[in-house]
């Protein structure tokens, strides 16, 4: 058991996951879902990232969620705005989470 573990550690570093950012590395050239501050979400192909989670994404679809409260009727309405950007740099300080896209999208 210990031997396999050691062998794993010495194995090729390209497919190994030992720190959280390795999961992001394995998403390179894959479509990913990024949740951002300010009720924004992105879906796009990951071309580059760094330790701050700055990223370059291709074929991006951005979804902005706007919740409006009507004070007279006291009801909430949720509106989403979608837009497409062919190539986008995203600054890492706005990133909340990175994940593979959900199957519905």
């Amino acid at each position: 058991m210990a031997d396999t573990l050691v062998a794993g550690t010495a194995g090729n570093s390209a497919s190994m996951v030992e720190e959280p950012l390795d999961l992001v590395r394995l998403s390179l050239d894959e479509r990913i879902y990024v949740k951002l501050r300010g009720d924004r979400e992105l879906r796009g192909r990951l071309h580059a990232y760094d330790q701050h989670l700055n990223m370059v994404l291709g074929d991006v679809e951005e979804t902005i969620t706007i919740v409006e409260v009507n004070e007279q009727t006291n009801t909430q309405s949720v509106n989403t705005v979608n837009r497409k950007v062919p190539m986008l740099f995203v600054r890492g300080d706005g990133v909340i989470l990175v994940s593979p896209p959900s199957r519905s999208s």
Partner: peptide, 13 residues
């Protein structure tokens, strides 16, 4: 800065 939109042909992915 939040985003920088780039023109795809200038980016070697």
């Amino acid at each position: 800065v939040r985003y920088v939109q780039l023109s795809p042909p200038t980016v070697d992915t």
